[in-house]
Design a protein around this nucleic acid. Structure first.
Lengths: 114, 114
DNA sequence: TGCATATATAAGCAAGTGATTATATACTAA
DNA sequence: TTAGTATATAATCACTTGCTTATATATGCA
């Protein structure tokens, strides 16, 4: 078995989780950089509870971790997750989302918390 | 850009489509063999309308094609689909589902239509 | 033609999803 | 302590999903 082998029901669960543009983009971003909640709120132009709820779904599965740094909570990819190699393989062909963080930096949105 | 490059919203759409165990398994099976509807009904122990509706979602996106052969309608993967290379890459680490068709053959389920 | 089989479609419904609004919790700084 | 900021959670709701049952359509065969 390859290291990325995964059962069908687990794979379907992962796809369902990533079958939302916001969550998919979050995971793609997190695979490259840690991010705090307020950054996601800016990037997606979404409400804070909406972002929080998406992050919770990712966290419930264990795909991301949270870590408080003072006033802010940073999220990161859980590279130790059983299916991280599978997810990484899935994310690989997707366009990198660095532009989103760059735009944020230009507009000063990243200064507040990072 | 790699040949499997895909925009985020399209990728999310594909993941949502495959984020269902029945559809994911269907696509994995179809990537290896054509199948007719009655085989899926047997394999998944599901109702015929339920199978038909899953197949319709796959067909609506263009990921599978249908072809009537007499009384039966066979489905196959549309290898010409814009995102087929992406889907193929996704399916690759999943366990092959050949056992399902073998079991069907042993139980005589495949004799009727194929 | 008439009946059986295979499949698609429509309607209805319970459960799930993703948003919003309101509120609670935790930390920082004055 | 009090006020302000960041985040999570709860309640609610419109919308979607995937199933069921019922029916329509298309083919094969007597």
């Amino acid at each position: 078995m390859l290291k990325t082998a995964i059962e069908m029901d687990k794979a379907a669960m992962i796809f369902k989780l990533l079958g939302d543009k916001t969550r998919l983009t979050m995971v793609k971003i997190l695979d490259a950089h840690d991010c705090c909640v307020c950054e996601f709120v800016e990037i997606f132009k979404a409400s804070q509870p909406s972002i929080s709820q998406h992050l919770r779904k990712l966290r419930d599965v264990g795909l991301v971790k949270e870590e408080r740094r003072g006033q802010w909570i940073f999220y990161s990819i859980n590279k130790a997750h059983e299916y991280y190699p599978f997810v990484q393989q899935i994310l690989e062909p997707l366009p990198d989302q660095d532009d989103k963080l760059e735009q944020l930096e230009e507009s000063g949105g990243r200064i507040t918390c990072c």
